[in-house]
Design a protein around this nucleic acid. Structure first.
Length: 657
RNA sequence: GCGCCCGUAGCUCAGUUGGAUAGAGCGUCGGACUUCGAAUCCGCAGGCCGGGGGUUCAAAUCCCUCCGGGCGCGCCA
């Protein structure tokens, strides 16, 4: 809605500049003034006109203010500072329209029509050979929040979680079971308890096993080849491991409200010969070549230009795509997968249902052979793909893009976007707490890497359990309610705290994980936001309990003149109202910049404003009925918008806190 | 060596396409619960935005350079 108001003003300014100065303007930029006294919108347009008009910006601004004439919804304008044009809305009219839109529900908030085509977001992508840890959670929560943002803006989104079930990491655990623990498939199947935790420990032992005897490392290559060939006992064991671990990952993510639609498996890319097809194309185009000599002799490699070629110091590095033992690296398989995602491969998977969420939503998994039963939805073939992968893989993503370009898919390569983010490391204190380093080693400024290979990290389920336990204590300290209800609320709080913690940092910022911060429920945290909405909801619950039904017809009773009277007299409340209008702008910005932390920062700022409002104005005991109506409308607007913000972040609103 | 990222208050971090007096949280200290629930609110203190140069009417933001830190450059992913 704010956008249409802005548009109206922009049009008026453009035609005025055309008329008065005979200058064509394509667009006018607007900003939110730093303080509410400066108005509701501000434009530096006079600064841009200063040069062509050879006139001081301040004078141009005054000219615009004096001569522009009336614009619907604009109460007044003024020239300010060195040449800003500050614009003041008709507060009543604005609030009235805003409130009526919001009351229509989510649809009232959505501003954009969907553009044609489908968007695939690929996230999580944990190697299915061990339990998920805190680093994986950051990926999944950022990815899931981004998906919610895209859907809010009206885009058609398909969520994929790639299962790398034929890679070295799975092979390592297979080797661990077969040769280190000497277990048969049946024995592995019989392992009870948390299988992902069991594999976490086993995987941590494998490096030592390889280092022990030279022959041990050959077992990895042998296992890897068996996995690619398929249809053997080794593959059966690997399938059991990766499927069981994938189930564990999906269960962990479901605890946080993160869901998927398709699990594309790497083994199917191989067995359906997606890779062979892509390999053929790459060879035909000369995108990859066979290395006769040098360190990569016997491998198929892609040449990557490096340095400034024009300057003549063009050095080339080689990226191995097919190993000398004939197996394919991750990059090779990813090129084939990207081609499929963008609908460029001309081949498709087979599918079967993998599991069903409590909501009824279904997750599908790819297959290499036809499967009778339900017809799957149409997967793949997207116009645009976001790959949520941490920044350390930027080089590999570049190689994959290079591969697509070499095949002639230049525009499509640009539409396959690396959604890059920094990793989570352990703070020094945290690493010491977990016994990964001694107090003496601890450098308070440094961090310790999370490493699945070393078995170092905070496991996702452990962290969620810890949050849950703390939340339960807090809930029980405040309310005397039955156990299941307390647990449900504690769960909502735990999830809110964790998701907010993982979203509030900009994606470029490395998170030094610290239990004290992650487990905090005060200040800039998820529970703070939830508490804010709970407070607002309580007002309406109390009202209802007292038999007051006026809230049911708030919009009918709340007229623009009534709103205007109060809003003109209360700049702090107007500031709160005006801020809620920026919700859609914020969502658009978050998608444009691929920065989900904007949602977090916006929601927090809004909650702060509301808590201040809540503190200053007592609503239920307000004696003036029309003022009470006004305050109720403000609280109602706020809780609607803030609830929408929390939904974007995957946070639920507890009944009480 | 080459490439990418970062450096803002004691600590952890925000800061829209360059815009008006650089903001939060935590921590410290001091206040506010007979009130719609204090998981809250208010106040105090705390900054050559790593250094230097440049572009601009305007730089924390863009360019150059130096210093300090992280990551990548595997027949792992």
């Amino acid at each position: 809605m704010l956008r249409s108001w802005r548009k109206r003003l922009e049009q008026a300014l453009i035609s005025f500049v055309q008329q008065a100065y005979s200058l064509p303007l394509e667009r006018v930029d607007f900003a939110v003034p730093p303080r509410i006294e400066f108005g509701d919108l501000s434009t530096p347009v006079a600064f841009d006109l200063a040069k062509p008009l050879r006139k001081a910006p301040r004078l141009i601004a005054e000219d615009i203010v004096n001569k522009l004439g009336p614009v619907e919804g604009i109460r007044r304008m003024e020239a300010a500072g060195g040449g800003y044009v500050n614009v003041f809305f008709d507060r009543g009219l604005f609030a009235y329209e805003l409130y009526n839109n919001a009351r229509r529900g989510a649809a009232g908030l959505v501003a954009d029509a969907p553009w044609s085509g489908k968007t695939i977001v690929e996230h999580t992508n944990i190697n299915p050979n061990k339990a998920a840890h805190i680093g994986h959670l950051r990926n999944a929560v950022i990815g899931d929040t981004f998906v919610r943002l895209l859907r809010y803006l009206g885009e058609r989104v398909e969520v994929q979680n790639y299962i790398d079930n034929t890679g070295v990491q799975v092979a390592d655990v297979v080797v661990g079971f077969l040769y280190l623990e000497k277990k048969s498939l049946a024995e592995v199947q019989a392992i009870s308890g948390k299988f992902d935790y069991y594999c976490w420990d086993l995987y941590a032992k494998i490096a030592e096993f390889y280092a022990g005897e030279a022959a041990n490392l050959a077992l990895r290559s042998r296992t890897l080849r068996a996995l690619e060939a398929g249809d053997n006992e080794t593959t059966e064991l690997a399938d059991h491991i990766s499927t069981r671990i994938t189930q564990a990952h999906l269960a962990t993510m479901a605890r946080l409200g993160v869901t998927y639609e398709l699990l594309p498996r790497e083994s199917d890319i191989l067995h359906l010969r997606f890779w062979e097809h892509a390999f053929k194309l790459l060879k035909e185009r000369g995108a990859i070549i066979y290395a006769q000599e040098g360190p990569s002799a016997g491998c198929w490699v892609m040449r990557m230009p490096e340095g400034d070629e024009a300057a003549g110091d063009a050095e080339e590095t080689e990226k191995i795509i097919v190993r000398s033992d004939g197996t394919v690296t991750y990059v090779g398989k990813d090129i084939a997968y990207q081609l499929w995602k963008l609908g460029l491969l001309g081949m498709d998977f087979y599918y079967r249902p993998f599991m069903r969420y409590p909501s009824g939503q279904r997750v599908w998994v790819t297959l290499a052979t036809p499967c009778p039963g339900e017809t799957p939805p149409s997967f793949g073939g997207a116009q645009r793909v976001y790959n949520v992968i941490d920044t350390r893989q930027a080089y590999l993503q570049k190689v994959v893009g290079q591969g697509l370009r070499a095949l002639g898919f230049v525009g499509q390569a640009d539409n396959s976007i690396h959604f890059s983010y920094e990793r989570v490391a352990l703070s020094s204190a945290c690493a010491a707490e977990l016994g990964y380093q001694t107090e003496a080693d601890a450098n308070p400024r440094a961090t310790v890497d999370v490493s699945g290979r070393k078995g170092q990290g905070v496991k996702a389920d452990d962290l969620i359990d810890k949050l849950l336990e703390k939340a339960l204590t807090e809930v029980q300290a405040r309310h005397d309610i039955e156990a299941t209800e307390a647990r449900r609320i504690a769960n909502q709080i735990a999830v809110g705290a964790l998701r907010y913690f993982l979203i509030k940092y900009a994606r470029n910022s490395l998170i030094a994980f610290d239990f004290k911060e992650a487990l905090s429920f005060e200040g800039e945290t998820g529970p703070y936001l939830q508490y804010t909405v709970v407070r607002a909801n309580n007002i309406f619950r109390k009202l209802y309990e007292a038999g007051d039904r006026s809230a049911d017809q708030l919009t009918a009773l709340t007229t623009a003149p009534l709103l205007n009277g109060f809003l003109e007299a209360a700049p702090d409340i107007w500031e709160l109202v005006a801020m809620t209008a920026r919700f859609s702008d914020m969502a658009r910005l978050a998608v444009q910049t691929m920065e989900v932390s904007h949602v977090a920062k916006f929601a927090f700022a809004l909650a702060q404003k509301f808590n201040l409002f809540y503190h200053r104005h007592r609503i239920l005991s307000e004696p003036d009925p029309s003022r009470k109506l006004f305050l109720l409308a403000v609280a109602d607007l706020l809780r609607t918008i803030l609830t929408g913000g929390l939904e974007l972040m995957g946070m639920e609103i507890p009944e009480r806190m």
